[in-house]
Simulated scan of single mutants.
Amino acid sequence: MRIDLSGRTALVTGSTQGIGLAIATGLAAAGARVGVNGRGAASVNTAIAAIRAQVPGAEPLPAVGDLSTQDGTNAVVDSLPHVDILVNNLGIFGEKPALDVTDEEWRRYFEVNVLSGVRLTRHYLPRQMDNGWGRVQYIASDSAIATPAEMIHYGVSKTALLGVSRGFAKTAAGTGVTVNSVIAGPTETGGVRDFVYQLVDRDLPWDAAQREFMRAHRPNSLLQRLIQPAEIANMVVYLASPFASATTGGALRVDGGYTDAILP
């Protein structure tokens, strides 16, 4: 299956590292012009250079702005007024006992993890609907379905994305635009490495720490290892393609079989 996104413009939020960078690279490899988003020009330019090194001939575009704020959202929209493919990947996470999560922290998680994508969807979706083609995706998490005791504020924000994407899919019904969520399982990124070492012995070498984390904290995983960011990107690129034209309103799992359910 050769996916060709030539002539399409994409925006991947939070794409200077980790899953977001892998998604931006995957879309660029399929021929899309990809907007790379981060809060600062330095990190965005570094990511653009990395994409160009991986994908000769790619044309990544800077989309600098803090999407947890309206001003930052305006800056991104000004730099990319229209996109055919919107991937709402931006997200924060962290371990904290449920009773210690303050109202301010709850609001911050919803601003970053939920409302950043809602704001962008409100801007880009109507134009996609008018054009009769578009793709909107939200990067959710296995934590949306199996709320982790150590970070319920994160899990609940990801649960919200499943409802948001289903609702916007109904808004776009019959227009040629699809809206979906991708449920990502435990994935090896720099942030996850730090998170793993918050929960297991810091003196363990990485391979042993990863195994101990999966054994003790994610025992349901059928993959029994952390997922690689490119494996998440593969699903996102497929959903962005014409091959996924009949897939909308869904929550598609790339979780290594972690969620013990037939459906989300």
Rank of each mutant, 00 (worst) to 15 (best):
G117C: 07
T159I: 13
Y154R: 09
S143L: 04
A144R: 05
M151H: 13
R135E: 04
V118L: 04
T121G: 06
G167M: 07
R119L: 01
A146Q: 14
T147S: 14
M151C: 15
E150M: 15
G155V: 06
Y124D: 01
V164A: 01
I139F: 02
V156H: 15
H123W: 07
G155S: 12
Y154T: 00
I145Q: 09
Q128V: 03
V136S: 02
N131P: 14
A149K: 13
L162P: 04
I152F: 13
R135H: 04
V136T: 03
R166K: 10
T159F: 11
M151A: 14
L120V: 10
M129N: 03
S157T: 12
P126E: 12
T147D: 15
A144W: 04
L115M: 06
K158W: 03
I145K: 14
I139H: 02
D142H: 11
R127A: 12
R166N: 05
R135S: 07
L115C: 05
E150R: 14
G167T: 10
Y124E: 07
W133N: 03
V118I: 03
S165H: 00
L125F: 05
H123S: 12
P148I: 01
Y124N: 01
A149P: 10
A144N: 01
T159K: 13
S143V: 10
H123G: 08
A144I: 07
R135C: 06
P148S: 11
H153T: 10
R135V: 09
E150G: 15
G134W: 08
R127F: 12
L115T: 06
T147Q: 13
Y138G: 00
T121K: 03
P148H: 09
S143G: 12
M129L: 07
V136R: 00
A149I: 13
L162V: 08
M129K: 05
K158N: 01
L161Y: 03
T147I: 13
D142F: 11
I145V: 13
H153L: 09
R127K: 12
R119F: 00
K158P: 02
R119Y: 01
I152Y: 14
I145F: 12
A160C: 06
A144P: 03
P148K: 08
G117V: 06
Y154E: 06
V164G: 02
M129C: 06
G132S: 07
M129H: 00
